[in-house]
């Protein structure tokens, strides 16, 4: 414990760099996942696409159960085959986008689907076009649920990014990984504790954000 603390004190730049790397990849992966996941989630809520929706959501659900190390292996294999860098940032960010996508996609779908039909009816009755209906009624009402999905995605991304250290991506997982390979207890603890704190703090922060983005009229109590 003391050794770990000494490591942190002696190498503050290293710890900061790892943390920033960790946050950066999380930010990139989740941003792209939102850009992909939300429109796809909206798209499959359309009438007549129930079967596509069911297949997509089921695929998403199953994919989430696949161990991340397995996904990394799979990606490295494919990336190597098409000549892209198969270790480091590239496979890490792709895997993270895939994972982060899933809760966002699922929650977007569920959120839009559970908008009270009476409200959609009311919107239509006031002469809103499909587009206006989506942007003025469905999406604002869906924000809290989509945000919950994003929160899950971000927390999960932080966790999986830690594992990505194994395939040569930096981040705080690097400390753990180096510590294990070099039998350096101080590194293992410094990495493990800081990534745990990072996960907890992010989750607490996001729960605040979640409350803050919920439209006033939807807040309970």
């Amino acid at each position: 414990m003391i050794e770990a603390w000494q490591f942190v004190i002696r190498n503050p730049e290293q710890m900061v760099e790892w943390t920033l790397e960790h946050l950066w990849v999380t930010f990139i992966a989740c941003s792209i996942a939102v850009i992909l996941g939300v429109p796809l989630g909206i798209y499959i809520t359309d009438k007549g696409k129930e079967q596509i929706a069911d297949a997509v959501l089921y695929l998403a659900e199953i994919t989430m159960t696949i161990p991340s190390l397995a996904i990394f292996g799979f990606l490295m294999f494919i990336l190597a085959a098409i000549g892209l860098p198969s270790i480091g940032f590239t496979p890490a960010v792709i895997a993270l986008i895939i994972y982060a996508q899933l809760p966002i996609l699922r929650n977007t779908y569920v959120a839009i689907r559970q908008v009270d039909p009476a409200m959609i009816e009311a919107g239509k009755g006031m002469g809103m076009s499909e587009r206006q209906l989506l942007f003025r009624v469905k999406l604002p009402l869906s924000v809290p649920v989509i945000m919950a999905g994003l929160r899950t995605a971000i927390v999960m991304t932080i966790a999986i990014a830690t594992i990505a250290a194994v395939i040569g991506f930096g981040g705080l997982g690097q400390a753990i990984w180096w510590g294990i390979r070099g039998a350096r207890m101080d590194l293992i603890i410094a990495g493990g504790v800081s990534v745990a704190i990072l996960g907890l703090l992010t989750d607490i922060f996001l729960s605040r954000v979640q409350r803050w983005v919920t439209p006033k009229g939807l807040k309970e109590m």
């Binding site: 830690t162 293992i188 493990g192 607490i204």
Partner: peptide
């Protein structure tokens, strides 16, 4: 619930020492 936001790798790592 808070515990679920701690990465599994962190839990594994903390077990070692």
């Amino acid at each position: 619930s808070a515990g679920q936001s701690v990465p599994s790798m962190a839990i594994v790592a903390i077990m070692v020492p």
